[in-house]
């Protein structure tokens, strides 16, 4: 197809083992056809699909992503993981829209193991839609560099977003199970606040005692530290979980949460020795 100069999208589907994968298998057994550029990844439950999987794919050249699970209330697992998929996809679509990416590039469907023909129909329809939209960024009018920058920005915020929205991401409300109610689970305003108000954590060199408590608790090793030296948060690594804020003893209060303002520049090399009062005395 590409040889004829026609746009051939890159599309991945992440589908649950019990229903959608079975549907895709039955689609094969029944010889229903769909475009070959769609490739499938098996997960045990659609609720296993993570925000970061979707952003990873878009940042690495995917033009569209598909998530497939069991029909609502038919999930193989007791916790009804497809509700989780519903929340995740609805959040993800809002995030995509926020950075200017057409949310139609992410699609969630329920396909049972008996619906081979439906699986093929969905694949064909989705593929056609994406072919018409063109490559990622094109229909959105975003240049490649800008696109990458935006995707990277949100990717970095995913741990923070998951933490802030953990209740909604685990929401199981059968009363809202139709797509529309879940679509409105996250408002545009909510997303905007979430991203604009994303905090940064900064260690005040004047207050830091170089005790390493915060560094020991940081889950991603984002605190540059050595004993009796002023600790510094590596903003590139920081996932904004705020663990350091709670780890720092209230006696010192060295970790500060900064919202809506830039983080002060790191302490110069010559001043990283901790200025402890009792240290001075000893000297």
């Amino acid at each position: 197809m590409s040889s004829k100069g026609k746009f051939e999208p890159k599309m991945l589907g992440m589908i649950c083992n019990w229903c959608c994968y079975g549907g895709a298998d039955l689609c094969g057994v029944s010889r229903f056809q769909y475009p070959a550029y769609i490739k499938l990844i098996r997960v045990m439950c659609s609720g296993r699909v993570d925000l970061k999987h979707i952003f990873l794919a878009f940042a690495n050249g995917a033009d569209a992503m598909f998530v497939g699970g069991c029909h609502i209330n038919d999930c193989h697992y007791n916790p009804e993981g497809n509700y989780d998929a519903l929340s995740m996809v609805s959040l993800c679509k809002k995030l995509l829209a926020y950075i200017g990416i057409n949310p139609k590039r992410l699609r969630l469907e329920w396909v049972s193991a008996g619906e081979g023909i439906r699986f093929a129909a969905i694949m064909n329809e989705f593929a056609k839609e994406i072919e018409q939209l063109g490559p990622l960024g094109k229909s959105e009018g975003i240049k490649e560099n800008e696109l990458q920058a935006r995707l990277e920005k949100v990717t970095k915020l995913i741990p923070y977003i998951k933490l802030k929205k953990k209740e909604k991401l685990a929401l199981h409300d059968p009363a809202l199970a139709d797509h529309q109610s879940y679509k409105d689970l996250f408002s545009g305003e909510e997303i905007e606040t979430l991203i604009l108000k994303a905090p940064s954590y900064w260690i005040d060199p004047e207050k830091c005692q170089g005790c390493m408590s915060c560094a020991a608790r940081c889950p991603v090793d984002a605190i540059v530290s050595a004993k009796l030296q002023v600790h510094v948060v590596d903003q590139g690594k920081c996932i904004k979980c705020g663990t350091c804020l709670t780890a720092c003893s209230s006696k010192f209060g060295a970790v500060t949460k900064i919202t809506g303002a830039p983080v002060p520049p790191p302490t110069p090399e010559d001043r990283i020795q901790v200025a402890r009062k009792n240290n001075k005395k000893a000297a």
């Binding site: 045990m44 993981g81 998951k162």
Partner: peptide
């Protein structure tokens, strides 16, 4: 082995 917890975990 559904992995729902995995997709919720921020870290």
């Amino acid at each position: 082995g559904c992995g729902l917890c995995n997709s919720k975990c921020p870290t």
